[in-house]
Design a protein around this nucleic acid. Structure first.
Length: 495
RNA sequence: GUCCCCAUCGUCUAGUCAGGUCCAGGACACCGGCCUUUCACGCCGGCAACACCGGUUCAAAUCCGGUUGGGGACGCCA
């Protein structure tokens, strides 16, 4: 088999959303699997809607995911000469024709047909214009588009889809479609095919919303005397109401950027995306990059649409619970050395980073991450829930404050006393800190939990966390002593 | 209105092509238990699905037909 060549051709009319990212991922995986090349082609022929900002966002999203490409980015508009020549050729060979129907006329016809519950497709008004008539209209200055002339044939045309199987359509059901606008700029159906031919694309992996385009494009390949690539139409991703997900109706939650900003690990997110419509056939769900490339294949892509299980306003899950679960899995299982740079980026963003975490305190940094990560869901939790480990400016949350501190006024006295004892420790260890804490509880005649959870509140501001004595040793003698001494100030004035 | 595609737990899915090993397996979520100074992690257990109707067959989640439901396309968008 010749080298496989695939492309990811986003239109730069918005950010990269999860459906597009998944398409890119499937293309990328197939390329890696087959040792081929991936081409990034920006399909910017819609001048009105394409933006620089969108291009930058898409590239940034792909880079974050780690989906790299071998050629490009190419810009479709840079090849408009190719597209025009192809249209010209089709015109000359009488495989296409000028159509003078105005947009308004067509729109009117379409609406009328819709209202009358009639079929609405192009009626072929200009299909049989003679050369003379065309000449005449052009002389008169009437604008025209170029339409592809669907061959008048009996029977059906079709192809074998790698995911869906045999897909066919009758010739008579295909309308003559526009390939060049009246302003001379070529349209998607044509550009896409011309570019795929030029880029020697061997496999087209795209969403099922392109299925009906494919039949039209088959005709274009034939007319342009090119061989057709292998097609694989992957299922769409819908929302919980089974509507197509879109930036328009779902906003940030479907943008790849959102997951970057909310502390997802890039590979974890890929791992989530790949499972939306593909499975390896065994019980595995977590894959390393290499494992996934090895396991991936087109014939295990599902036919039916999957649902992105996001419920707006869900108090517990801010996005699909499975996405979070996979992220958590990686967060607590990857080697801490791999996690550290990602945590570093977050701490930098939140202004919590200190350079010695990379030098003198590097081991401390790794140990701390390892200590606290099992309770976290996303990377940003290190900077929010974990703030007390990296800064003295942490919040004391209301719940632990009330439940574990204010409820036991004696703590106002006990904890500063304990602070004194901790200050005098020459061996600030797990054993010694625990021994003194338990002794303190005994003197106060309360359960050890009262002292321990009181300390937890004062030292971390949190209701829950790792073993208290691990925390003490990690945060360090000086800070613990000063935080514990601060206890009285957490009580309301005069209490 | 026309054409096309799809249909297994709440969600992601295995099983469908080569019918029996499936009164349907895994994961997430949910519920219970163990562990424990808290909360997690971890471990153990539980709940939960073959859309419907007919046909073929000794045997159907699996094959065939229909129904229903869902999705997509029908643009001088991509």
């Amino acid at each position: 088999m010749q080298q496989t060549r695939l492309r990811f051709p986003p239109s730069p009319t918005g950010y990269l959303h999860i459906g597009g990212a998944r398409t890119a991922l499937y293309n990328w995986l197939f390329v890696k699997k087959t040792g081929g090349k991936l081409i990034l082609r920006i399909e910017d022929t819609d001048a009105d809607r394409s933006t620089e900002e969108s291009i930058a966002g898409i590239v940034e999203g792909l880079e974050w995911l780690g989906i790299d490409w071998d050629e490009g980015p190419y810009f479709q508009t840079d090849f408009s000469g190719d597209h025009r020549r192809a249209a010209e050729k089709l015109l000359e060979e009488r495989k296409a024709y000028h159509c003078f129907c105005s947009k308004e006329e067509l729109e009117k016809k379409r609406e009328a047909a819709l209202a009358a519950k009639q079929n609405f497709g192009y009626d072929g008004t200009c299909r049989h214009l003679t050369d003379g008539e065309v000449e005449e209209k052009q002389q008169a200055g009437h604008p025209s588009v170029i339409r592809f002339k669907v061959p008048e044939r009996e029977g059906r045309i079709g192809y074998d889809d790698e995911v869906l199987g045999r897909i066919e359509s009758s010739y008579e059901e295909i309308d003559d479609f526009v390939i060049v606008r009246s302003n001379g700029s070529p349209l998607y159906l044509l550009c896409n095919v011309v570019d795929d031919i030029r880029d020697r694309i061997s496999h087209v992996i795209r969403g099922q919303d392109h299925m009906t385009n494919t039949v039209k494009q088959l005709l274009l390949y034939e007319a342009l005397e090119a061989s057709i690539p292998v097609f694989a139409h992957i299922p769409l991703t819908l929302d919980t109401k089974k509507a197509k997900i879109s930036k328009r109706s779902h906003g940030e939650i479907v943008a790849v950027q959102f997951y970057k900003e909310h502390g997802f690990l890039p590979w974890a997110f890929n791992n989530f995306l790949v499972l939306l419509g593909w499975s390896p056939g065994d019980d595995r769900e977590i894959f390393s990059r290499e494992e996934l490339i090895e396991a991936f294949s087109l014939d295990r892509i599902n036919k039916s649409a999957s649902i992105f299980n996001y419920r707006k306003g869900d108090p517990k899950f801010f996005t699909d619970p499975k996405a979070i679960a996979i992220n958590e899995h990686y967060l607590r299982t990857i080697p801490v050395e791999e996690l550290a740079p990602l945590v570093k980026d977050v701490l930098i963003d939140y202004n919590l980073w200190q350079d010695d975490y990379d030098h003198d305190r590097h081991q401390w940094f790794l140990d701390t991450i390892d200590l606290i990560r099992s309770r976290f869901h996303v990377l940003t939790d290190f900077a929010t829930l974990g703030k007390a480990y990296f800064s003295d400016q942490y919040e004391i949350e209301a719940k632990p404050l009330n439940k574990n501190l204010l409820k036991h006024p004696g703590l106002k006295q006990w904890l500063p006393e304990l602070a004194d004892e901790y200050e005098n420790l020459t061996d600030f260890s797990l054993e010694q800190t625990e021994r003194l804490a338990r002794a303190c509880a005994e003197r106060a005649e309360v359960k050890p939990g009262v002292i321990i959870n009181g300390m937890r509140t004062v030292v971390t501001g949190q209701l829950a966390g790792p073993s208290m004595f691990d925390i003490l040793v990690t945060i360090g003698q000086d800070k613990v002593v000063s935080r514990l001494r601060n206890t009285p100030q957490l009580f309301p004035e005069g209490s």
